[in-house]
Amino acid sequence: MTSTWLSPRAGPAAGSAAPKWRALAPSRFGAIGLAELAPLLVLVGLCVALGLLNPSFFSFRNLVWGVANSAAIPLILAMGATFIILMGSIDLSIEGALSVGTMIVALLCANDSNANNFGWWGPLLALIACTALGLANGLVHVVLRIPSFMATLGVWFVGLGIGTVALGGSEIRVLDRTIRSIAFERVLAFPLAVWIAAAMFFFALFLERKTRFGRYIYAIGGGEDIAALSGVPVKRTRILAFALAGFFNGVAAVLAAAQLGQANTTIANGRLFMTVTAVVVGGTSLSGGWGGIANSLIGVLIVAVLANGMVLLGISPYVHETVQGLMIIAAVALSVRRGRSLIVK
């Protein structure tokens, strides 16, 4: 038994006249293909409709500031959340991690409430702290065998609590110009924040497509017991995924601090819901196994374009939520994998 991969021994029946095993009927391919393309079609449709209703949608300024820049932080958050949701788990600690992260950045760099001026140590420490919170999520979830829903809910409140204690409820302004430049420095016409988000996207895409970690995420989402039987290090992968999500939360926290120039405990309000919405709208299944990073990019863009479009079209704020809700249901309805189960819970 010494053959190598590149010089396979021919199988006993290879090329013989034996009947071939069949794939299922091709109609099923068609169905899957359409469902997978649905989020992209929704995005394209949305953009075309907006462009027709208000041509300034396609103006460079709007695409950069109204869409790309607004999507930067949500995209980074969605990267981490995608890995978690692909495993069939959920990370509720996003807002807690964000408030801890922004707080660390603000307290350590030049700010208006203490004499610190540690420059880039702030963002670095924020990344470490958020990763540690993610790691805590994973450890609590895996080692104590607490469902991720509860484990991350706990860490969410711990994060908010830390923020509350340390900030005492007040807000702190970030005065460090180099840190704030993350949000405002333009490189090739795009703000640095957009480039960072793009880099994070490709990093996540690489992890998903090219590494064993990415494989194992799908394996766990597809069937954890089967994955374990195949020798997939399920626990390690889970813990790693939560730590990774924490890291992405940390990057987002640094960007949020830079963009808004301040830290306070409520800075992250609403982020969790928006992130999960974007991931699901992109076509990633909450039960795990299907979807992915590219889907989430589309999901984030759908949500961002939708928000941008509401303002561009001057839609009354009184109907915003209704319109948003309808669009989300439409996007998910188009992409849901029907027929996989009779009843959807």
Binding site: W5, P8, R9, G11, P12, A13, A14, K20, W21, A23
Partner: peptide, 10 residues
């Protein structure tokens, strides 16, 4: 190559 061993052509 592995699939060839079992004669499965997919």
């Amino acid at each position: 190559a592995c699939l060839a061993k079992v004669g499965l052509d997919v």
